[in-house]
Computed example of a mutant assay.
Amino acid sequence: MPCTDFDIRILVDNRVDDGLIQEHGFSVWIEASGQRILFDTGQGTALGHNAKQLGCDLGRTDMLVLSHGHYDHSGAVSHVVGIAPSSRMFCHSNAFLPRYSIRPGEAPRLLSMPFSDGKAFLHVSDSRITWVTGPRMVAPDVGVSGPIARLHPLEDTGGPFFLDPEGRHPDPIRDDMSLWIAGERGLIIITGCCHSGLINTVEQIRTRSGIERVFAIIGGFHLLNASPQRLEATCSAIRAWNPEIVIPCHCTGDTAEALLIETLGSRVIPGYAGLKLSSSRLPDAVKTGLRSAALPPGAAERRS
Rank of each mutant, 00 (worst) to 15 (best):
P2N: 13
L11D: 00
D13G: 05
V16Q: 02
D18P: 03
G19H: 09
Q22H: 13
F26R: 02
V28H: 02
I30K: 03
I30R: 00
E31S: 15
R36I: 07
R36T: 13
F39Q: 00
D40S: 15
L58Y: 07
R60N: 14
L64V: 14
G69H: 02
G69F: 01
V77F: 01
V77E: 02
V77C: 03
S78R: 06
V80Y: 00
S86D: 11
F90E: 00
C91H: 04
H92V: 05
N94P: 03
F96I: 07
I102R: 07
P108M: 13
R109M: 12
L111Q: 08
S127A: 15
G134D: 15
G134H: 13
P135C: 09
V142S: 08
S145H: 05
G146C: 11
E155N: 04
G159A: 12
F162G: 00
L163S: 09
P165A: 12
E166F: 11
G167W: 06
R168D: 15
P172K: 03
D175F: 06
M177L: 12
W180V: 00
I188E: 02
I188C: 05
C193R: 00
C194G: 07
I199S: 01
T207Q: 14
T207L: 13
R208P: 00
G210V: 07
G210A: 14
I211W: 11
V214W: 01
I217T: 04
G219H: 01
G219A: 10
A226C: 11
S236A: 10
A240M: 01
V246W: 02
I261G: 06
P270Y: 05
Y272W: 05
L275A: 10
S278R: 08
S279G: 10
S280L: 09
P283H: 06
L290Q: 12
R291K: 14
S292I: 15
L295S: 14
A300C: 13
R302N: 10
R303M: 15
R303N: 11
S304E: 07
